[in-house]
């Protein structure tokens, strides 16, 4: 299994040293003589492997260590512990052959040159990545087709809307046909239509090229549409690595039961069956402890005049929220100096 993996990381860690100072003039003067620093563990000994062609969702709240991990895997940061290989390379050695085969797309970062038409940035990337002319033409045509770039290519970047710019950013990052994609919030700030478009594109690119994708997103729709497998990290530690569908089994100790009643819900003592989540005319949504699902649904069916009943796993957002609400870390609230990514 391990030797098939494109990305393999083992006990990878990153500690940031941040300067610390109390408020006030005295503290400011004291810091001239003795500077106080504090170590912030952004990534804490995480390990996982990703196989060729997989699309894996990398989930976690702000400050969990997702972006730091992606930055280490793309060679921007040196880890403080552990090891990682991507396509057989150690990323932070920044081997040029490695950089030619991977890409990192950061939602709010632009590699497009502000003042010149998009196609000219593409041309520059062609030179820098040494993409042969026919392959470049093919890539531009293909990306133009998939992302509908035709009307945008001749416009200077500064004249594009956020969504248009993001599409062009993604295209610029993929011209060299990377076989590993690190996508950090690729749909951030985009409207729903554009988000869907980008998701479709990632699926299409993955199918066409067999590229391996590691993706972070705060939009669960992205994760549900793209990733069979997810890795959940929190406070720099890996909490879960497995199928998205298994996340609810593992972390949600409850099920959602939706009941439709013939005679409406009025007057029914519904809270005896579980926690009342929603309640509208004739339709009730209850949250029931997983272990009691069978017995409670049996009782509902026996005691109420039910016209329809469905038992579901809770929405993935709720599960994730539930996971992240466990063991709050005071560091997150007190750490304004922590690097803005993670």
């Amino acid at each position: 299994m391990e030797h098939d993996s494109v990305i393999h990381i083992d006990k990878l860690s990153k500690v940031y040293t941040v300067n610390e100072r109390e408020a006030g003039l005295v503290a400011a003067m004291r810091s001239l003589v003795k500077r106080k620093t504090r170590a912030v563990q952004a990534v804490d000994s995480i390990s996982f492997s990703v196989n060729e062609g997989e699309i894996v969702g990398f989930l976690g709240p702000n400050g969990a260590g997702k972006t730091t991990t992606l930055k280490m895997l793309s060679g921007l940061l040196h880890p403080t512990g552990g090891s990682a290989t991507v396509l057989g390379f150690r990323p932070w050695e920044r081997n040029r052959d490695y950089l030619r085969r991977m890409t990192l797309v950061m939602g709010q970062r632009n590699q497009l040159l502000w003042d010149i038409p998009v196609i000219d940035t593409f041309e520059l990337n062609r030179a820098v990545y040494r993409i042969p002319e026919p392959q470049f033409r093919l890539a531009v045509d293909e990306l133009t087709d998939l992302l509908d770039l035709e009307p945008l290519l001749q416009k200077p970047t500064r004249n594009l809307s956020l969504g248009e710019r993001m599409k062009c950013e993604i295209a610029a990052a993929l011209l060299h046909r990377p076989s590993v994609l690190f996508l950090d919030e690729p749909t951030i700030g985009l409207d729903v239509t554009m988000q869907r478009r980008i998701r479709q594109f990632i699926t299409e690119y993955n199918m066409r090229t067999g590229a391996t994708v590691l993706l972070t997103s705060h939009y669960m729709a992205d994760v549900e549409a793209l990733c069979k497998r997810v890795i959940v990290i929190h406070h720099g530690k890996s909490l879960y690595d497995g199928e998205l569908s298994g996340l609810a089994d593992r972390f949600a100790p409850f099920k959602t039961v939706e009941v439709e009643l013939h005679n409406g819900a009025r007057g029914q003592p519904l809270t005896q069956y579980g926690e009342l989540m929603a309640h509208s005319e004739g339709r009730v949504t209850l949250r029931i402890p997983k272990a009691e699902t069978a017995s409670v649904t049996g009782r509902i069916l026996a005691e109420l005049d039910v016209s329809d009943l469905t038992v579901q796993d809770p929405p993935i957002e709720d599960v994730i929220e539930h996971v992240f609400s466990q063991s709050p870390d005071p560091l997150d609230q007190q750490d304004p100096q922590r690097p803005s990514g993670e």
């Binding site: 950061m106 590699q111 820098v128």
Partner: peptide
Amino acid sequence: SVMLLKPI
């Protein structure tokens, strides 16, 4: 960061 990601 954008410059560091380039293979040059």
